[in-house]
Structure formats: structure tokens, C-alpha cells
Design a protein around this nucleic acid. Structure first.
Length: 644
RNA sequence: GCCGGAGUAGCUCAGUCGGUAGAGCAGCUGAUUUGUAAUCAGCCGGUCGGGGGUUCAAGUCCCUUCUCCGGCUCCA
């Protein structure tokens, strides 16, 4: 028997008789690790715990604490679910069933082709069956088979999806995993046995095209979550419930922020006074910061001649998101899906010198895009929205500096609103594009260089750029850890070319500027939706539509309450008064329900002392303040843009 | 757009086998003058998403259409 050396993550080394398995390695390390072990990484590859190791290797044991360990757990859960479905509905065909570690609520799914339509009642049945299979504690067994043979078997068994997948691979063999009577072609790895999956919840069933292509058949997808302990599942379900409570669509109605009504149309937002106030504050801050950071503000119309969009390339490359043109005195006009051609026209209004560059023009520009009915979602996906747009026209030598500047400016904004975690993506040339490949490469390199200069970690998103240029997308993480796309920074060599814009260079020749398109918050609609969910409707003082509400205890205190209100308003605070014929408990309840950050309770005692009894939303009574102290405190919170 | 689910008062929801639509909250009016998350009473409020059909009779059964929800695809 030969000896092999296993290197461990702490750089320790141990000798074993070959072949050894990760399970055995775990046992020699500690009994608790052996119990927690789900899978292992051997020389960088995730494998089963009973994977035979026959040469010197580096081994790391995966537990629930490793993302890869959880992924194995959820992948096995998908298999478990598929086996339960097959026991209940034997004529089901399996398509694909992976773990989805990045999703907020669901952690795995399986796409199934079955004659009967699944309902929630059937999900419960499947869950029960899964629990039964868990209690059987069936081991997951791996075996390999010849790929071409397997394809034949799939075909004769009518397993068209598996056959299609296997026929696209090139390996000699394919692997199968079985537990009990259930077998599925799968790369693995899997848990040692079904008994590990102690707690399962199937969340929903939904349609999903085979391979995500709408030309293909629509399958039924079951989403689920699973955990090694019941308690963890309960906590997870609670988190989903918490997210549901924060849903901006419900908070938007309950807090009287906005509405979207059928009479106006799908995806078209009505901003109510309270929501519009929040937007106004965001926009005022945005404008002030832009003006202070080398931007100038511009405005442009909502429609323009169709020809403008022909020049820009939108009618060719963006047609599916644009509304039909409308004839005005025999000329076709088009409602704008983007602001860029207008800013280019402003640029073109006179001869530009290299000395003027960079030119930075910002506009809160409202655009209209056709979105298919099924994708609309509250404020997050709408058909009319206002981008916090800007276009920077610069010389090639200024490009990287401008992008870095934009990134830094952007991070300042996001941090001010309370977002500290980001995922950054660099999106490269898509299938449909304008311009030359060289131009694209140049633009992509500029973005890459800027990201590296700004020291941001990023991932490359191949083929996800816009038709006129590559882009940096920044997704922010909210308080619940969900990520949202807001910022986009795009480099564009193409529109300057298409519109033939120029500047006089230092040497007197004509040169072409480069454009940077950027939206930092993305759109006012989406950003507002994200803010609502991030804060669960509890806006910080600087953003709250109503910062403080004066609550007189009795009518007798009303004159003093009016005086307090006038003083608060006089200090520039957004204050209201509740003079309804209700008891103080009810007034407090109403203000709490509207999530007003501060309440000033005033009765006889306060009137006599010239004070207010302050109450903090969600926290309760915080004691008596003189009117001046109260104003000073609130103005301080507002000025600091404090988030608590 | 596609698959599945759901639409009853402003909101949350009842409504049995097909037999003249109901509650709480909100709103209005009045009483009450109240001390840190709901005072009491009365009143108003509905072509049961729209259209069509079956039936003596439809919120209920059938067809169709719109909107919303969960996803897929797409995206700020």
C-alpha cells in the first residue's frame, strides 16, 4: 500500500494510505468536523466526501459554513425534490436542477416537464414525500457511464432534456448520481446521504423556458430552500417575511408615497406628495452636488424627430424598447428612450475647443421605454422613468481620469444614502453593436484601467454592454443583503462618430471627443423603490417627507401646538400637526404608522414650560426638550444626513 | 410576450348547494377634552375588474378580455 501526503488548509500535512477519502481525512482531523462535513475541495475541485484520493493532494473539508458546502447541500436538495416528484408523478421528465446560492429567498430549483399543472397543494405533498425520503437516509451514489451510450438510453427513455445536454458535452463519460431508485445525470458532487437535509420548504412553482430561451418549451420550475436544521429554515422564512413587509409596493400605498393605477397605465408612476417630497430632496441634493462637482445642468424635450433616433442608431438597435412614432405635421416624432442625442445636439450648437473639455452635462431626464407587460414590477421596472443622467465629453487623454472621477463621485452618493456594499461588473461588447471592434476594445480597456485605479473588485460580464459601448454596472446591497442595479457608467466612441461631433485640438486639427454616459442612482423610480425597501419605510430625518409631527394632548394645548408647528416650519423643518379629535394614544399610533421619525407631544405641562416632549419613531418617549433644543437636534440630524 | 395563480367598499377580508352583497379599519357627522401605538355612537361607501353566455335567477357555472402577483426572457 502506497503512502500519500495530504496538505491541509492550515498548511499542516498528514500521511495516509492510498486511496484515502475526504471523509477519512475529516475523521482524523476531528470528530466534530467529520460530523459537519458535507463535501470537500481536493486540489481545487469540489468533490464528494467518498472521492478516492490516490496521490499527494491538497484537501479542504467543506461544511455548511463554506458557500461551496451550502451549494452542494442545495444541489442535493434539488435532487431530493426531483426524486419526490418522480415518486408522486412518475411520468415527469427531468430537465435541470441546480443550487442558486445568490438568490435571496429560494436556494435551489428543478425544471420539470410534466403533463399535470402543479399547485401549492401539490407542493405540500412533494414536501411531505421529501421528508419521507430524508428519513430513509438514502446514500447518494456516484457512477460513471459512457456518454454516447447514455445518450442512447436517454433517447429511448424519452429523456430528451438529458439527451440534449449530454450530446453537447465532449467528455468520454458522464456521471450519474442515485439515491434509492432515483438516478439523475449530474456532475455532482453531492451530500453523503439524504438524511442531511433536515428542513425543506418549497416556495413556489413558476414557468421557465427550457434553457431560458423563449422559443423553447415552457417547463414547470419548483423553487425551494433547505437547511440542516429546522431552526435555520424558520429563520430564513422569517427573513423572507421581513422582506415581504418591506415591499415598496405595499409601503408605497400605506405611507401614501406613490401609486400606479390602471386608468393611467401599467408601469407609469404617480408620485403622491409624500413620495414627491422624498424625490425632491434627493434631486435637490443631486443638483447641488453636481453643480459643485464640475457638472452643468441641462434640460431636453420628451420627443424628437424620428430622424434623430436614426442617426443615433436607436431605431436600429433599440427599436424593441421604443414606442411607435407619432406623426406631427407629416413628420414622424418619437418619444425619447434616452437623453444622449439631445446632449449631443447641445454640444453641436457651436464649435468646441479642446480647452472646454471635459464638458459634463447632467439632466434628470425622463425617458419612456417599452417593457413587456410581464416584467413590470412596482417602481423597480416601469415604462416611464427619470434617469439621473449625465454625459461627459472629453479628450482621449482625459478618459481614464474622468471615469475614475465618476466612480468616486458615485460612491460618495451611494454612501450618503446608506449603501456601503457593492458588486461591480464590467460589461463587454454585445452581439448587436455599433462601431468598430478596435473602438470597443479601447473603451473596455479604459473602463478596466479606471476600475483598477479606483481599486474596485469587479467581475466581467461578457456580452452585456449597451449597443454603443461597454459599461461598468454597480449593484448596491441593501439592508437585507439583496443587490440592486443602480449605477451604470458607459464609454462611447460611437455616438460622437455617428453625430460627427468635434473639437479644435491644440494643434489646430479637428478631433473627436469621447462620450461617457452615466447614471448614478439609475432612475429616480427604481432608486426610490430601493430606498423604501432598504429603510423599510423608516426614512432618516434628512429624507423623511414629514420629519416631525406635533401632537397636542388636548384642544387646550392646541394654540401652543400651533406655535410649536410654526417654529419648526420657520426653522425649515418638514412638520405637520394632528389636531384631530382623538386621544393622544391614537395620534401617536397614526404618526407611528406613517413612520414619521419624530413626534412632539405637547400638553399643559409643555405649554407652561415652553418645551416639547419628543418621541422617536419605534423607540418611544425620549424626554423633554426646549423648543430650541428640539429644532437644533433635528436640524443637526438633517445637516449630517444621519442614518440610524 | 410566455407559464401558473389572483381580482368582492379606499385598505384587509367574509360570502354555504346558483336564490335580492357583509364585517373591521379608513372617510364623514356628532358626543367626549383625553398624557405616549386604536374613546364611543351614527352615517356614507359596491354594475362583485370589464364584456358576453347558460339559467326563472350568477359574486358563485362557462367563454373572452384587462390588470395585478410568482417566475422565465429582458432591463435604469
Amino acid at each position: 500500500m502506497s503512502k500519500i501526503e495530504i496538505k491541509l488548509p492550515d498548511n499542516g500535512r498528514r500521511e495516509f494510505d492510498a486511496p484515502v477519502t475526504p471523509a477519512l481525512v475529516a475523521q482524523t482531523l476531528s470528530r466534530s468536523l467529520a460530523l459537519k462535513a458535507l463535501a470537500a475541495v481536493v486540489d481545487g475541485r469540489v468533490v464528494d466526501l467518498n472521492y478516492p484520493i490516490s496521490k499527494d493532494s491538497e484537501v479542504r473539508i467543506l461544511t455548511w459554513d463554506d458557500p461551496q458546502g451550502r451549494e452542494v447541500f442545495w444541489h442535493s436538495s434539488a435532487h431530493l425534490m426531483a426524486s419526490a416528484v418522480l415518486e408522486l408523478f412518475p411520468d415527469t421528465k427531468l430537465a435541470i436542477g441546480p443550487a442558486i446560492p445568490d438568490d435571496f429567498s429560494a436556494k435551489f430549483y428543478y425544471d420539470l416537464d410534466m403533463p399535470q399543472k402543479l399547485t401549492d397543494a401539490e407542493l405540500e405533498k412533494i414536501e411531505k414525500k421529501m421528508a419521507e425520503i430524508v428519513s430513509r437516509n438514502l446514500p447518494f451514489d456516484r457512477r460513471e457511464a459512457n456518454r454516447l451510450e447514455s445518450i442512447k438510453e436517454f433517447r429511448s427513455a424519452g429523456d430528451i432534456y438529458k439527451a440534449e445536454m449530454a450530446s453537447e458535452w465532449s467528455d468520454e463519460t458522464v456521471s450519474f448520481y442515485s439515491h434509492g431508485n432515483f438516478t439523475d445525470m449530474c456532475r455532482g458532487p453531492h451530500l453523503p446521504s439524504t438524511g442531511y437535509i433536515k428542513a425543506v420548504k418549497l416556495l413556489s412553482v413558476a414557468g421557465a423556458y427550457w434553457r431560458g430561451d423563449e422559443k423553447n418549451k415552457m417547463l414547470q420550475r419548483i423553487y425551494g430552500v433547505s437547511f440542516p436544521e429546522r431552526k435555520m429554515l424558520d429563520e430564513h422564512l422569517q427573513k423572507i417575511e421581513e422582506a415581504r413587509k418591506r415591499d415598496h409596493r405595499f409601503l408605497g400605498r400605506d405611507l401614501d408615497l406613490f401609486s400606479i393605477v390602471d386608468d393611467v397605465g401599467s408601469g407609469l408612476v404617480l408620485w403622491h406628495p409624500r413620495g414627491a417630497m422624498v424625490r425632491h430632496i434627493i434631486e435637490a441634493f443631486w443638483k447641488e452636488e453636481h453643480l459643485g462637482n464640475g457638472y452643468e445642468i441641462v434640460y431636453s424635450p420628451h420627443i424628437a424627430k424620428l430622424d434623430l433616433w436614426n442617426t443615433s442608431g436607436h431605431t436600429g438597435f433599440y427599436a424593441e424598447n421604443m414606442y411607435s412614432p407619432m406623426p406631427i405635421e407629416n413628420v414622424q416624432y418619437e418619444i425619447k428612450p434616452m437623453n444622449c442625442p439631445f446632449h449631443i445636439q447641445i454640444y453641436k450648437s457651436k464649435t468646441r475647443s479642446y480647452r472646454e473639455l471635459p464638458i459634463r452635462w447632467a439632466e434628470l431626464g425622463t425617458v419612456y421605454r417599452y417593457e413587456r407587460s410581464g416584467v413590470l414590477h412596482g417602481l423597480m421596472r416601469v415604462r416611464g422613468f427619470t434617469q439621473d443622467d449625465a454625459h461627459i465629453f472629453c479628450r482621449p487623454d482625459q478618459l481614464t481620469v474622468e471615469i475614475v472621477r465618476t466612480i468616486e463621485f458615485n460612491l460618495f452618493f451611494l454612501r450618503t444614502f446608506g449603501f456601503e456594499d457593492y458588486d461591480v461588473f464590467l460589461s463587454t461588447r454585445p452581439q448587436k453593436f455599433v462601431g468598430t471592434i478596435e473602438g470597443w476594445d479601447l473603451a473596455t480597456e479604459a473602463l478596466r484601467l479606471a476600475l483598477e485605479t479606483a481599486k474596485l473588485n469587479y467581475q466581467v460580464d461578457p456580452g452585456e454592454g449597451v449597443f454603443y459601448g461597454p459599461k461598468i454596472d454597480i449593484k448596491i446591497k441593501d439592508n437585507l443583503g439583496r443587490s440592486w442595479q443602480c449605477t451604470t457608467i458607459q464609454v462611447d466612441f460611437n455616438l460622437p462618430e455617428r453625430f460627427q461631433i468635434e473639437y479644435s485640438a491644440e494643434d489646430g486639427t479637428r478631433a473627436r471627443p469621447i462620450m461617457i454616459h452615466r447614471a448614478l442612482l439609475g432612475s429616480m423610480e427604481r432608486f426610490f423603490g430601493i430606498l423604501i425597501e432598504h429603510y423599510a419605510g423608516n426614512f432618516p430625518v434628512w429624507l423623511a417627507p414629514e420629519q416631525i409631527r406635533v401632537l397636542p394632548v388636548t384642544d387646550e394645548a392646541a394654540p401652543y401646538a400651533e406655535k410649536v408647528l410654526a417654529a419648526l416650519k420657520g426653522a425649515g423643518l418638514r412638520a405637520q400637526i394632528d389636531i384631530s379629535n382623538e386621544k393622544i394614544g391614537k395620534k401617536i399610533r397614526d404618526a407611528e404608522s406613517l413612520k414619521v421619525p419624530y413626534m412632539a407631544v405637547v400638553g399643559k405641562i409643555e405649554a407652561a414650560a415652553g418645551q416639547v416632549a419628543l418621541r422617536r419613531h419605534r423607540a418611544g418617549d425620549i424626554g423633554k426638550y426646549s423648543l430650541d433644543q428640539a429644532i437644533e437636534m433635528l436640524k443637526g440630524l438633517e445637516a449630517q444626513k444621519k442614518i440610524d
